[in-house]
Design a protein around this nucleic acid. Structure first.
Lengths: 241, 241
DNA sequence: ATTTTAATGTCTTTTTTTTAGACATTAAAA
DNA sequence: TTTTAATGTCTAAAAAAAAGACATTAAAAT
């Protein structure tokens, strides 16, 4: 049982994670739904232990939800301008579920602790969606992948956080060669292109996209992908380490 | 007198500011020296009041040190991986100055409060160096502009923070047209170019630089600058609002 | 007044990069 | 063996960036 107090955790500071995945030509975000009366979704969140670095804390939170140990993650922004949007929603949720909190394995002051003003460090993470085993914490009712264009309404400013996270991802995908974190070990050029198209929400030209990627000199061919279709089999590539 | 406790301020969270200025073809940073025995420099720092947003807090801290109200500032990174570098330096400073703290107008628990682990939100600010009236707080001995390449050794990870801030500035100077914040209201094209050369630490070609700037369509001519030299007078430009 | 000087303003040419078009390759079905 | 449909790669066109060249002009020198 985690002791929610300032001896154990850094007070008033949380970490909110936007976990990006990619599947079937769609960019997705992993969003848990809270185990409370009413429909309340939030980004996967957590707090920072006193003896723990913030990246470390984010890694822990992400591992807990995805089961992935070596996850790619990046801090992109702090959200802390009071009042954060619709703090009201959090309160209405707490109001609806007062009794419910008694059943949780938390210390007595948990509610007081939780309803303080929070400043949140935003991280985004990139994962191979096939490697993820979505995992419920004790306050989750369910956890699901949502298309980025079809996110449920989340509490506080979490929908807005996704907008910022996506912007940060777009800025970095190219320059920092992050795309590979969203794909399986081996992938075809078309798959890589479709990923880019999903992230930037615009089409790329096949020939030029391939040239650009190969010119980066970070890809190596590892074979061919025989699909059984009546056409040439594409090469498989993988990210050089 | 500020009450340094968690009723009044957000605990364990600070704001560190890299204040950039530009003068005589040099990019500079405003750095106070602490009013303690021993040579201790730090970035201008402060804390966040409970009823205050983080941008608001940064603005307040910056106004206090520079006297400028409408300052340009941008959050660029959070530093919070424990142990932050040379926390030892802070301790040795406190050790040297135990008695000194009694003379400060602070509450009794100030020392305990200050020596906690801190997570810091990094902001950088851009100012017209001529408009700044550097202002000492009660813990400063002096405050000075240093060339970015000749910064004094600062406590904790503050020198490293400047490296990150400069990187963020370089990424944004162009795309977000920030340069004007570092210059007086009116400036010549050459002055603008020299500013860019100072920030990026590399030369630009006069003709192409001018074309690029004018093509942005954010500059307007406001007259000529008659210098008394035996040559053509340059135009003065100003940033369109 | 006229010429000279030196810095700025602007146009043209060259080079590089990006984008678009065209064609070659090939695994498997017909 | 031919056809199909997707991938791989080369070439041409367009756009952008870099380099070069020359025009303009305020004030000093003549």
């Amino acid at each position: 049982m985690i002791n929610y107090n300032e001896k154990n955790l850094v007070n008033q500071l949380s970490i909110d994670c936007v976990i990006f995945g990619y599947q079937q030509k769609e960019l997705k975000v992993l969003v848990p739904k809270l185990f409370f009366k009413g429909d309340f979704w939030t980004l996967p969140s957590g707090f920072i232990f006193q003896e723990e670095g913030i990246d470390e804390a984010a890694k822990r939170i992400l591992e807990q939800r995805t089961g992935i140990k070596d996850i790619f993650l990046e801090q992109y922004r702090v959200f802390g301008n009071v009042p954060r949007t619709t703090h009201a929603a959090l309160n209405s949720m707490l109001e609806l579920n007062k009794s419910h909190f008694d059943t949780l394995k938390v210390n007595d002051n948990f509610l007081e602790w939780l309803t303080q003003r929070f400043i949140s460090i935003g991280y985004y993470a990139l994962v191979d969606i096939n490697k993820v085993v979505p995992n419920l914490t004790e306050i989750d009712q369910s956890i699901e992948w949502y298309n980025i264009s079809e996110l449920p309404p989340m509490i506080s400013d979490h929908n807005q956080q996704v907008v910022f996270a996506l912007e940060a991802l777009r800025q970095n995908l190219d320059s920092k060669l992050l795309g590979f974190n969203l794909l399986p070990e081996e992938f075809t050029m078309k798959e890589l292109q479709q990923l880019y198209e999903a992230v930037y929400a615009k089409p790329f030209r096949r020939n030029n996209f391939q040239k650009k990627m190969l010119d980066l000199e970070v890809l190596e061919r590892v074979g061919k992908k025989l699909t059984g279709a009546a056409n040439k089999a594409p090469y498989l590539y993988r990210f050089k380490r």
